[in-house]
Every structure is written in C-alpha cells, then in structure tokens.
C-alpha cells in the first residue's frame, strides 16, 4: 500500500486536516516508470555515503588506506575497527552525554513552552499581545549570534564545563511556542467549559484536558527539539572542553586527532555515532516524519 502517511487525519497546526488523501493513480505509464527510475537513482546516490562508510569500517586499516580503491577488500571484511573503537574510544560515554542532555533539553522545552502557549491561547491577561509579539519576533535571532555573550554569561555563572552550560541556553524555542499555541487554539473550548463550571483550576484544565488532547503535537515538538539538541554542534562545542562531558557530535570531532589517519576506525566511529537516531527512525518513522512536517515550517 502506498497510502501517504503524512496526510493521515491528525490535528495539525500547519497542515489543514480536512483535506483528502489523494490516491496515487496506479497506471504504469512510461512517465511513471521514468519517475521511478529517477527516484531510484537518487536514492542509490543518497545511500552511497552510508554504504561506503560501512564498507570502509569493515576493512582492515591497511586495506582502507590501500591505493586501490575498492568495495571488496583483499583481506576480507572484519569488525576489527569497531572492536578497537569500543576498546579505546569514548563512544558509549559520549552517547550517554548526548542522551541525557538532549532529554533534559526536550523535557524542559516541552514544559515551559506548553505552559506559556496555553496562557497565550486561553487566558486573557494584560500584556499578552506584547508578549506574543516579542516571542514571535525572537524567532529570527540566530543562535550563532549569541555565542559570545552566552559564553561570557556561562563564565560569570561558573558553569563552563558543566552539563548545565549545555542544557540551559538550548531550551528556548519561540517557534515551538507558536506551534503549540496554534494547536491549542484549535481545541474546542466547549471541552473545558464543564470543568470550569466544576470550579477546576487553570492548571488542572491544562494538565487534564488540554495536554491529553495535545499528544500528537507534543510528540512532534519533542521529536523536533530532541533531534536538534542531539545533533547540535556549535554550542556544546563552546560550552564544554572536559573530555568527560563531550556530546557525541563534539566528541567525534576529536577522534581525527586522537587516532591519526585511521580510516576504518574513523568510519566505524561515525557509524556508531549515527546509529542511535537511525535505529529510532526505523522504528518511529511515521511519527518522526509527521513531527518534522508539522513543526518544520514554523522555523527552527
């Protein structure tokens, strides 16, 4: 079945959900065959870097550095490079660092963004318009512009070379506030009225009615923020120097100097670093694609 999963009816902030799924026309025409051929060609092209890295990683160092560039090495394939990387590398440590910092960033972002988005969507309070305008305007601030003052701030707070320095500045996502607010706007108010009659507090309405209805968008935002945090290079690179705190992307940057020119080991490290998100993607492909598609247009 080729049902496009992207348009499965789901409440979404940026894509209207009333539209119908367009079933692909099944006729095999010359045009369609050509399209499939081109699509396949691009797909192969796009898979080559993975394949070449994998082939290299399973070679001996001698074969990898041999002047005869070949897919099938003369001494055969061996997991040697992976074993080596695991023995003297820090990949498990870096993976753990990435995992807990990204999880913390995602959790804090979700909580604070959903709270403020709820206020912007449902509560009438003085200064709301100004707040909304300021948040929207801040979307255009590119993080690299802030590296110097943020570094200085972390110096002043004595947080350089701590996990907090990685986490704290990464939890502000104005665009995600906007995405959540638009979603909350679409939730029918009638659902809350009964609770209001019962005298439920705002916080209770928020946690017991709004949040459960917002699972898809919360998941989408979480996925988007997590991927961003997991792969962020520039800020963790600036905020940490201590080898015990490096995240995966930053740690990986140091292997070139530590190993010298060990091509097989370099590729083995790169693949091991790539593995966690790729595996997660294989399992949660639909959610991830939907998440990126719904939040993506709101900006990064």
């Amino acid at each position: 079945m080729a049902t496009p999963t992207l348009t499965r009816p789901a409440p979404s902030a940026t894509t209207a959900n009333s539209l119908k799924i367009r079933q692909p026309r099944k006729k095999l025409t010359v045009g369609r065959i050509a399209a499939i051929a081109v699509a396949a060609f691009i797909a192969v092209l796009w898979l080559i870097p993975f394949a070449w890295a994998t082939a290299t990683a399973f070679k001996t160092e001698t074969d990898a550095a041999a002047p005869d560039v070949t897919w099938l090495p003369p001494s055969g394939f061996t997991p040697e490079a992976f074993v080596k990387v695991f023995q003297d590398g820090n990949i498990p440590l870096w993976t753990w660092n990435s995992l807990y910092t990204s999880a913390a960033i995602t959790a804090i972002t979700l909580v604070i963004s959903a709270l403020v988005a709820y206020a912007l969507s449902r509560i009438d309070f003085k200064g709301k318009k100004v707040l909304m305008t300021v948040i929207i305007a801040s979307i255009i601030i590119p993080p690299p512009v802030l590296i110097i003052p943020l570094f200085y701030q972390m110096l002043a707070l004595n947080l350089i070379d701590t996990s907090w320095a990685i986490i704290l500045p990464q939890v502000i996502h104005p665009a995600m506030v906007f995405v959540l607010k638009k979603f909350f706007d679409q939730i029918p108010r009638e659902l809350e009225e009964a609770a209001v009659m019962d005298g439920a507090s705002r916080l209770r309405i928020f946690t017991q009615i709004i949040l459960p209805l917002s699972r898809p968008i919360l998941a989408a935002v979480a996925i988007f923020v997590f991927i961003g945090a997991w792969n962020n290079f520039l800020w963790p690179f600036i905020a940490t120097n201590d080898g015990n705190l490096l995240t995966l992307p930053v740690g990986l940057q140091t292997i070139k100097s530590a190993y010298g020119i060990q091509y097989a080991q370099n590729m083995a490290s790169a693949l091991l670093a790539a593995l966690p998100l790729i595996v997660v993607f294989l399992f949660f492909q639909r959610q991830i694609i939907k998440g990126v598609a719904t939040t993506g247009l709101a900006g990064t």
């Binding site: 804090i108 909580v111 604070i112 963004s113 709270l115 403020v116 709820y118 206020a119 912007l120 509560i123 009438d124 309070f125 003085k126 200064g127 709301k128 707040l131 948040i135 801040s138 601030i141 512009v145 802030l146 110097i148 003052p149 943020l150 200085y152 701030q153 704290l168 500045p169 939890v171 502000i172 104005p174 506030v177 705002r202 928020f206």
Partner: peptide
C-alpha cells in the same frame, strides 16, 4: 494566572536570550 503560566518560559527567555542580546 496568565503571567503565572508564562513565568517559567519567560524566566529562561529573559536570562538566556534577552539578557545575552543586551549584554552582547
């Protein structure tokens, strides 16, 4: 309650975005 809900975000927003911009 409006500002209450906004406070956690606002705190981060002011400390780690607005302040660095001004201080920068």
């Amino acid at each position: 309650s409006g500002w209450g809900f906004a406070t956690p975000f606002l705190a981060f927003f002011l400390v780690f975005l607005v302040w660095p911009i001004l201080y920068g």
